[in-house]
Amino acid sequence: MGSDIRERVIDSALQEIGVQEATGNNDGTRVEAYLRYVGLGKGYAWCAAFVSWCYGRAGRPLPRNAWSPALFPMVRRYTAAQIAQGSIRQADLFAIYSSSLRRVDHVGLVRQQKGNWIVTVEGNSSDKVLSKRRPLATIYAFSNWLD
């Protein structure tokens, strides 16, 4: 898969930066569109729905799941060695792990890796779509749905 699809996924995500929930309850016109894409109505956590919607908008049918842990099957995950070698690429997914829930609790898109940091685009972060800078040490897993 060429970089073209990766750029389309990220372009879709970048166009959504600034979208925010209407009342802070996983709602609002755009948020509900992301949730509808994965078969849910308003009121559900939507980070995985957002990622799935971005892939769909770029013409990729998968991933398409509202459950963030489902976006990190072992067959799609990068190994520690691959991560250390700098294999993470634009449009890969990153996971944040919740020790209290004992599972992946948040997912977003990698925009780019810069040294020991990644720049992201993610939904349902502070109730909106935004770009963040996250230290690699805080990332639980990365997955590749394009190769």
Score class of each variant (00 low, 15 high):
42 K>N: 08
42 K>E: 15
42 K>V: 08
42 K>H: 12
42 K>Q: 15
42 K>I: 05
43 G>V: 07
44 Y>C: 04
44 Y>T: 00
45 A>V: 09
46 W>T: 00
46 W>Y: 12
47 C>L: 04
48 A>N: 09
50 F>D: 00
50 F>T: 02
51 V>F: 03
51 V>Q: 05
52 S>A: 12
52 S>P: 03
52 S>C: 02
53 W>N: 01
53 W>R: 04
55 Y>E: 03
56 G>S: 01
57 R>M: 10
58 A>L: 09
58 A>H: 08
59 G>Y: 13
59 G>V: 08
60 R>W: 09
60 R>F: 07
60 R>I: 08
60 R>M: 14
61 P>W: 11
61 P>T: 10
61 P>M: 08
62 L>T: 14
64 R>S: 10
64 R>P: 00
66 A>Y: 05
67 W>D: 10
68 S>Y: 06
69 P>F: 06
70 A>Q: 13
70 A>R: 03
72 F>K: 03
72 F>A: 05
72 F>T: 01
73 P>K: 14
73 P>R: 14
74 M>S: 15
75 V>R: 15
75 V>N: 14
75 V>D: 15
76 R>V: 04
76 R>L: 05
76 R>T: 10
76 R>K: 15
77 R>K: 11
77 R>T: 05
77 R>L: 09
77 R>Y: 01
78 Y>K: 12
78 Y>C: 04
79 T>Q: 06
79 T>H: 10
80 A>E: 10
81 A>V: 06
82 Q>P: 02
82 Q>G: 05
83 I>W: 01
84 A>Q: 12
84 A>P: 02
84 A>C: 04
85 Q>G: 10
85 Q>K: 13
88 I>Q: 07
88 I>C: 04
88 I>N: 05
89 R>M: 13
89 R>C: 12
89 R>K: 14
91 A>W: 03
93 L>Q: 02
93 L>Y: 10
93 L>W: 04
94 F>H: 00
94 F>K: 00
94 F>G: 02
96 I>G: 04
96 I>R: 05
98 S>L: 02
100 S>F: 10
100 S>T: 13
101 L>V: 07
101 L>W: 15
101 L>M: 11
103 R>Q: 15
106 H>M: 01
108 G>L: 05
109 L>A: 01
109 L>Q: 02
113 Q>W: 02
114 K>F: 11
114 K>A: 13
115 G>D: 07
117 W>T: 04
118 I>M: 07
119 V>H: 10
120 T>I: 07
122 E>P: 00
122 E>S: 07
123 G>T: 05
123 G>N: 00
126 S>D: 11
126 S>K: 12
